[in-house]
């Protein structure tokens, strides 16, 4: 039995999942230049929202996604106004410590409210797969990949054609020039951060039926997001998607074709980060001046 078809399927589906994990993080980082260490916790909150709505009211995670996105947007905007705005011009270490602390607080509140128990949503499609010969495509991951494609397409379209989207790009490229052009830079920062949070909770909704939901699930996903942004470089959504797929193919390939590779596959992310930081510190698609 050849492993190749399943390897390709798993790599593509994991790439979709990684794209979801990184997309929001990359947006906030690309525009505000703040590394949001609480991004993983927003994913976690999205996952819990989906879980409670699923178990409490029997609502399908995909059906509640729009509402959760709106809520995530509002929370992200409030978080920016309450905390992040105050450290925009502060040294990087202050920004990192602040977002890290926010992440820890959210995580601990989640433990207090919902305990450390492992949870998961189990809509029917999460446990089904399309079988093609020896290979199979799990619907849950396929949907995750589909949501990633949809969100990335919407984000690209918004950045390209919407006025606010173009303003976001302008601020990301040169905030001083954007200010001179009359763009409300702080407003754009708030918008980007809120959108980033909305994308984070959307990711959470999807992963609620793919991986295990716990208050501690955010950090490993943050690590993946950071790896992808480092591999891809800043300033390119397409580059970020490519980065996510590079990571997914590398990890899955390692897991499939190296003895005991599943155990070491995640180390691939760190090897990639190290290699990119040495060879091309601005990433595969990044601009050296960014």
């Amino acid at each position: 039995m050849s492993l190749l078809p399943q390897f390709l399927i798993d790599s593509i589906l994991l790439g979709g999942l990684y794209t979801l994990m990184a997309i929001g993080f990359a947006l906030a980082f690309g525009v505000t230049r703040i590394i949001n260490f609480a991004h993983g916790e927003f994913i976690m909150l999205g996952a819990y929202a989906a879980f409670w709505l699923f178990t409490g009211w029997g609502l399908d995670p995909l059906a509640v996604m729009p509402a959760v996105i709106v809520l995530g947007f509002a929370c992200g905007w409030l978080l920016f106004k309450a905390f992040i705005e105050r450290v925009l011009t502060a040294p990087n270490i202050n920004q990192i410590l602040l977002t890290f602390a926010i992440g820890l607080v959210i995580q601990h509140i989640a433990v207090i409210l919902w305990s450390g128990n492992s949870r998961s949503t189990t809509p029917e499609y999460a446990l089904k797969a399309l079988t093609i010969g020896d290979a199979f495509i799990p619907y849950g991951r396929l949907i995750g990949c589909g949501v990633a494609v949809l969100l990335v397409a919407m984000l690209i379209a918004w950045l390209k054609w919407a006025e606010d989207g173009r303003a976001v790009r302008a601020v990301a490229q040169n905030s001083d020039a954007a200010t001179l052009m009359g763009i409300n830079v702080k407003g754009i920062y708030a918008l980007s951060f809120a959108l980033s949070s909305a994308l984070g909770v959307a990711t959470g909704v999807v992963v609620s039926f793919i991986i295990t939901v716990t208050p501690f699930m955010g950090f490993p996903m943050l690590v993946k997001a950071v790896a992808i942004v480092i591999v891809a470089g800043m300033g390119s959504i397409v580059g970020m998607v490519v980065g996510a797929f590079v990571l997914a193919f590398a990890e899955t390939g390692f897991a499939y074709y190296v003895a005991e590779g599943s155990g070491w596959a995640e180390g691939v992310a760190f090897v990639l980060i190290t290699a990119i930081l040495i060879i091309r510190p601005y990433g595969l698609f990044g601009d050296a001046e960014a």
């Binding site: 399943q6 390897f7 798993d10 994991l14 999942l17 990684y18 799990p138 793919i210 991986i211 490993p220 993946k224 990890e251 899955t252 897991a255 499939y256 005991e260 590779g261 599943s262 155990g263 070491w264 596959a265 995640e266």
Partner: peptide
Amino acid sequence: ELVREGSADFNSA
């Protein structure tokens, strides 16, 4: 089959 604790995908194993 050794797998990574907290892995996002166990399919390969």
